[in-house]
């Protein structure tokens, strides 16, 4: 459900940037969404379908790049890909790890006209 808020924020950012650039509308928007960002991609895509209506993004192609989450082990400093937030370091089995990527929720770029 919070994906709708996220979608509406995306529309607001696109709207603002389009105005700043004195453009009329967006024909492509690129987003970066981390796999541990707390956003479900399918839900976001669904929410965007509604949120973009009657906005500068109305006809824009939406490109979403998923950023694979990675963590750093605070014990052995190993850097590894993660699929959840509760698995130990595969090298030394330590649970004290730090996420170093995968929390991204970013509007990367807009192509406007």
């Amino acid at each position: 459900m919070h994906e709708l808020s996220i979608a509406m924020n995306i529309v607001d950012i696109a709207d603002e940037e389009t105005k700043k650039a004195n453009a009329k509308k967006v024909y492509e928007i690129e987003l970066e969404i981390g796999t541990m960002s707390g956003v479900v991609l399918e839900a976001l895509e669904f929410a965007l379908q509604e949120a973009v209506k009657d906005s500068v993004l109305g006809n824009a192609k939406i490109k979403i790049t998923e950023i694979q989450a990675k963590a750093k082990c605070l014990n052995c400093l190993n850097i590894f890909e993660i699929e959840d937030l509760y698995s130990p370091c595969p090298n030394c089995n330590e649970f004290k790890t730090e996420i170093i990527s995968g929390k991204e929720l970013i509007v990367k770029s807009l192509k406007v006209e």
Binding site: I6, N9, I10, D12, I13, E17, A21, A23, Y27, L31, L105, I106, V107, K108, S109, L110, K111, V112, E113
Partner: peptide, 17 residues
């Protein structure tokens, strides 16, 4: 307009507001 559109680098956190 597709051919002469411009690209804006936004790099903005969606939750920035």
């Amino acid at each position: 307009n597709h051919s002469h559109g411009t690209e804006i680098k936004v790099e903005t956190d969606i939750l920035q507001k």
